[in-house]
């Protein structure tokens, strides 16, 4: 009896403490993270919206002049902006085969390789992913050097003219795309291989017993089961693809020749830190963020719809 009342008292203090926890504890635990994210992401986001209505050159001494929607009007009238937007689309389109299609083919094609050699390949093709983008840029600049680079040496050896990979306006953007793809191809292949290996073999076996051909198995069994992974990679490529190329553009082409490799992310940087036009940079940042959000929303919806295949 005494024991019982003891435990009841304990229970009530416990409840009391828990009631206290309900109010304060979670917030204390969350504070450092929330503070960081608010200070470095959410507040700056709002500030970017505010700055997009001002004209300012980032010098603390010069005044911020309110100009309303003028920054937006100016940017939208700028051919450079539309070129950057078009290039952003090109980056995404160019990256999709390298970051999704080729890895998909590879993952399906190599799924019956013995585990041992698969592990070795996996270790090798992952290397570009961990190499720093600046280092990758330096190495590729050396490989693609028009005079002495290994690639052009090979091309001239085959009897063709050397290609100006980084200075020809028609070629440069594709060069940057391939280098960006080089970083990603191994990673995507591994993601899709893992998803492919997770497919229940009895499903494939059942289809085979029903007389499905190899191609039919891929089309009707594997692809639908892989669709959520595929959509995930497509989303990554669309949302982040052009962003991943920033370092290569910055180091290798500086956005040129003639703006041919400038995408929207690079344009933001260019407006902000080369032309020192805070208003323009912020206005295009707002446009980018809204467009970005709309695309993300649409893709999430799509993934939601297809992810039931997962189980």
């Amino acid at each position: 009896m005494a024991e019982l009342s003891m435990s009841r008292r304990e229970a009530s203090t416990l409840r009391l403490r828990r009631a206290g926890n309900w109010r304060v504890s979670p917030w204390l635990y969350l504070a450092p993270a929330i503070l960081t994210l608010v200070v470095w992401i959410y507040w700056p986001l709002l500030d970017a919206v505010r700055l997009s209505f001002f004209q300012w050159n980032m010098l603390p001494t010069s005044p911020q002049k309110f100009v309303g929607w003028e920054n937006y009007a100016r940017i939208l009238a700028l051919p450079k902006f539309w070129q950057a937007l078009r290039n952003t689309g090109l980056y995404v389109l160019g990256l999709l085969p390298l970051a999704v299609l080729v890895p998909l083919a590879l993952a399906i094609y190599t799924h019956d390789l013995p585990a041992r050699s698969r592990n070795i390949y996996r270790a090798i093709i992952f290397v570009p992913m961990i190499i720093a983008p600046v280092v990758a840029a330096a190495v590729w600049r050396w490989l693609l050097d028009p005079g002495y680079g290994m690639v052009n040496t090979g091309i001239t050896w085959l009897g063709f003219d050397p290609v100006k990979f980084l200075t020809d306006p028609k070629v440069a953007i594709w060069t940057v795309i391939v280098i960006t793809g080089w970083k990603l191809i191994g990673f995507s292949t591994l993601i899709l291989s893992a998803a492919n290996a997770n497919i229940n073999p009895s499903l494939v076996e059942a289809a085979r017993m029903d007389g499905a051909s190899k191609w039919e198995i891929i089309r009707d069994v594997r692809l639908p089961l892989l669709s959520s992974s595929i959509l995930f990679l497509v989303m990554m490529t669309i949302l982040l693809g052009a962003q991943w190329s920033f370092t290569y553009i910055n180091v290798l082409t500086g956005g040129g020749p003639l703006g041919a490799t400038t995408n929207i992310y690079y344009l933001l940087w260019d407006f902000g830190f080369s032309s020192m036009s805070v208003g323009w940079s912020s206005a295009s940042a707002v446009i980018l963020f809204l467009g970005f959000g709309a695309i993300a929303f649409f893709l999430f919806k799509l993934i939601d719809r297809y992810s039931f295949h997962d189980n």
Partner: peptide, 19 residues
């Protein structure tokens, strides 16, 4: 927290730099 993933760094770079 999850949505911060969607904010490209280039969008917030100027306020961050100013801070």
């Amino acid at each position: 927290v999850a949505l911060t993933w969607l904010v490209p760094f280039q969008v917030v770079m100027i306020p961050n730099y100013l801070l």
